[in-house]
Amino acid sequence: MFNLVIFGPPGAGKGTQSEKIIEKYQLAHISTGDMFRMHISNDTELGQKVKQILADGLLVPDSVTIEMLEDEVSRNPDAKGFIFDGFPRTVPQAEALDAFLKGKGYKIDLVLQLDVNQEVITERIAERQKISGRADDDASKLIKRIDEYFSKTIHVLPYYQNQDKVVKINGIGKINDIFENISNAIDTSMA
């Protein structure tokens, strides 16, 4: 089983590249953002809580996120591996993910860091907002989301760097060129 984390700020291209990784490597995709949106659209109790937290531009508490993620992994027992998109966002989440995977006899094999500057992020999300209308892409919330990433989430990288699992990928350029670099990193890690 091969497990990877795709890491980067909002608008870095995690969703776009995840789709290509899934197609090529047949990994199960676990996107915390998609899980949250599903709960919100189904108006579950969890969805109502998450909706307010996201509307405020904050991160969902670790305990809620981890519970949803563990449930999602357990529902895919025959997966060749997982791509974790939008998780972990804190060091405690990374530690909880490692402990959970270890309990199942798995580990995180690779962390892909999509490196994109703030100017490009802002442009991409503005374009995405025109198309998708996602509430979390609203300009006022975007600033909070980017701040959350650079003030909190970025601190997860040293956790994985200390395990020699991080490969930095230039996230600016043509989608297929970026994906070629990602594929090279995955293939090297799988070898």
Rank of each mutant, 00 (worst) to 15 (best):
L157W: 05
I108L: 02
A12R: 10
L46R: 01
K174H: 13
I53E: 02
Q93Y: 09
Y106V: 03
A99K: 15
I108W: 08
I21Y: 00
I21V: 14
A12V: 08
S41W: 00
F36C: 06
E67T: 12
A96T: 07
S183R: 11
S63Y: 06
R128F: 11
L97P: 13
V167T: 15
I30T: 02
I146G: 04
N162V: 00
Q161Y: 03
I175L: 06
S31W: 08
R37I: 10
K152F: 07
F84D: 09
K168I: 12
T122F: 06
E70L: 04
T188D: 03
G11P: 04
A99T: 14
D164F: 03
G8S: 05
S183Q: 14
E119P: 07
I182P: 00
V116W: 01
Q26T: 09
E70N: 10
L101E: 14
A126S: 13
D62E: 12
V156D: 01
S183K: 13
R37E: 05
I175K: 13
F7K: 01
N162W: 00
I172W: 00
Q48S: 14
I186T: 08
D147V: 04
S183G: 04
Q161S: 14
Y159N: 07
K51S: 10
S151M: 09
I154T: 14
R134L: 00
V111K: 07
N117M: 03
E180K: 10
V111L: 09
Y149W: 03
E180F: 05
F2Q: 05
L101K: 07
G81I: 09
V60A: 08
G171K: 06
K104M: 12
S63W: 02
A139E: 15
D177A: 12
P158D: 00
H29A: 08
D115M: 04
A79C: 06
D109F: 04
Q26G: 08
Y149Q: 01
V116L: 02
G105R: 10
S183C: 13
V120D: 01
P92M: 11
I66P: 02
A28N: 09
V91N: 07
D78C: 01
D34F: 03
Q113A: 12
L110M: 10
I30D: 01
E70V: 11
K107T: 11
K130H: 02
D187A: 11
A135I: 14
T16V: 09
Q163H: 11
G13S: 07
V166M: 12
G13L: 02
I178V: 15
P92R: 12
N162M: 09
F36K: 06
D34R: 03
G47Q: 05
I30Y: 07
S189K: 15
L97N: 08
K141V: 15
G86P: 12
A135K: 15
M38K: 15
M38A: 14
F87D: 02
D136Y: 08
V73G: 04
K24Y: 01
H29S: 06
K168W: 00
I40E: 06
K130C: 01
I121A: 00
A99P: 00
D34E: 15
L157F: 06
